[in-house]
Computed example of a mutant assay.
Amino acid sequence: MNPISLISLALAMSTDAFAAAIGKGSSLHKPRFIQALRAGLIFGVIEAITPMIGWAIGHAATRWVQDWDHWIAFTLLVALGLHMIYNGLKVDDDEVEKPSQHSFMLLAVTAFATSIDALAVGVGLAFVDVNILLASAAIGLATMTMVTIGMMLGRVLGTVVGKRAERVGGVVLILVGATILYEHLSA
Rank of each mutant, 00 (worst) to 15 (best):
R63F: 03
A36Q: 09
G25N: 11
D93K: 00
A17I: 05
P31E: 07
G44P: 07
D93E: 15
G44R: 14
A61Y: 07
K90Q: 11
D67F: 09
A21F: 05
A19V: 04
I42Q: 09
A56V: 07
I34R: 15
G25Q: 11
W55D: 10
K90D: 06
A61W: 06
L82I: 13
L76N: 00
A21G: 01
M52N: 05
H83G: 15
A19M: 02
G58C: 00
I34S: 15
L80Q: 03
G40T: 02
Q66P: 08
P31F: 02
G23D: 07
I57M: 07
R63T: 04
I46T: 14
A79H: 10
L37E: 13
G25I: 08
R63G: 03
G40H: 03
N87M: 12
W55K: 12
H70R: 03
A48W: 12
K24D: 12
F33Q: 13
I49R: 10
L41E: 06
G44A: 13
D69M: 13
Y86D: 01
Q66H: 15
T62D: 14
A39R: 06
L89M: 13
L28R: 12
F43D: 00
G25T: 09
R38C: 05
A79E: 12
G88C: 00
F43V: 07
H83L: 15
I42E: 01
D93V: 01
E47V: 14
T62C: 03
H29K: 15
Q66A: 09
V78W: 07
D92I: 00
L80P: 02
A60Q: 11
A17M: 07
W55V: 09
H29A: 15
I42Y: 06
L80G: 04
G25V: 07
H29V: 08
A60M: 10
G44N: 12
L77G: 06
A36P: 06
L89Y: 08
I85V: 15
W71C: 11
V91N: 00
Q66G: 12
F18N: 07
I72C: 02
D92V: 00
F74L: 10
T62Q: 14
G88Y: 00
F74Q: 04
Y86G: 02
L89A: 10
I49G: 08
M84W: 14
I42N: 06
P31D: 04
W71K: 09
F74G: 05
D67E: 13
L76H: 05
D67K: 10
D93M: 02
H29P: 01
I72V: 14
Q66I: 02
A73Y: 06
I85R: 11
H59T: 11
R63S: 05
S27M: 09
F74K: 07
